[in-house]
Design a protein around this nucleic acid. Structure first.
Lengths: 163, 163
DNA sequence: TATTGTTATACTCTATAACTATA
DNA sequence: TATAGTTATAGAGTATAACAATA
């Protein structure tokens, strides 16, 4: 357990890291804002999935997920096919155009990070990744690296039904 | 220099840490959104300063800074006194009420982090702080811990004049 | 003419609530 | 009745541009 001053400093750093995120957002292609980029990245990493699963991985409400998905679907980067097992659901899957877009995103972010972090060692980057992953896990976030088969906790991110 | 896959993973973690930030945002007092909280924190840490300096520390455009500052000033948490040396400028300073609010913010974030990070050691938290600080420095962010007297780079965050 | 700060406008991201269509 | 997903609306954060006051 850490000290109070340390927690304050960590809170400060978490707030301030937004500047880094904004910097990365500026190099995105015009039609692909951060939310869309994240959808493509997660589908590329975890493969086809349903909306509800994607909302879990995004750790946002399903209404937000729906908007991001509509955006990328309108541009032909993913397809939404009905789930034969449950016709309320839709299966999301990257299209070839989506894979191309994902590749472009990867090139851009890699180029930016390679430039900014040119004096970081492989191990330092690895330590930062590991600590950030652990931080998210400590906050009950299920978006870790999540190998297929990892026991996904049943945390729903949805507005209470309230009927 | 790290590998491409590592950079992609770091980009993913940076995107995903937003969930942690949102979680922290949910415990803020009703009248004090994240932007206001950051203004109070920076004034508490660095002391009285001008708008332009605050905009640098926030790493956002001065127009954004102006809005946040107007919000906290309207609640009596800071005072804006004219700068005798340059009457275009205004000096921002925490009021006693602002100090109280800052203390409340500190209590809330500390409580949340102490809960979520109960199994972290002091050293682990320190390592994460150090790496995040370095990350921001690598991105040319001047919001580091910035002891008074640190040579603040002359990076302006303002919309180009364009006249 | 350049700089400090403000305001107006627009866009992104998010959450809540109400709605549909299935289950 | 409950769940999967959509849409409408509102709030916060940010950027750009135009503006006022002062240097």
């Amino acid at each position: 357990m850490a000290e109070r001053t340390q927690f304050e400093e960590l809170a400060r750093q978490l707030s301030a890291v937004g500047a880094v995120k904004r910097d990365m957002g500026r190099i995105l292609p015009p039609d692909c804002p951060a939310g869309s980029a994240t959808v493509l990245t997660l589908l590329g990493r975890h493969g086809a999935m349903r909306m509800s699963r994607l909302a879990e991985l995004l750790a946002v409400d399903m209404s937000v997920t729906s908007r991001h998905v509509a955006h990328v679907a309108a541009r032909g980067w993913i397809e939404r096919s009905p789930d034969p097992a449950d016709r309320r659901s839709r299966i999301l899957r990257l299209t070839p155009a989506g894979l191309d877009q994902l590749d472009e995103l990867s090139r851009r972010t890699t180029r930016l990070l390679a430039d900014r972090l040119s004096d970081w060692t492989d191990e330092e980057v690895g330590r930062l990744i590991a600590l950030m992953t652990r931080l998210r896990e400590s906050f009950g976030d299920c978006r870790s690296t999540a190998r297929a088969g990892a026991p996904v906790l049943e945390e729903t991110t949805r507005t209470p039904a309230n009927t």
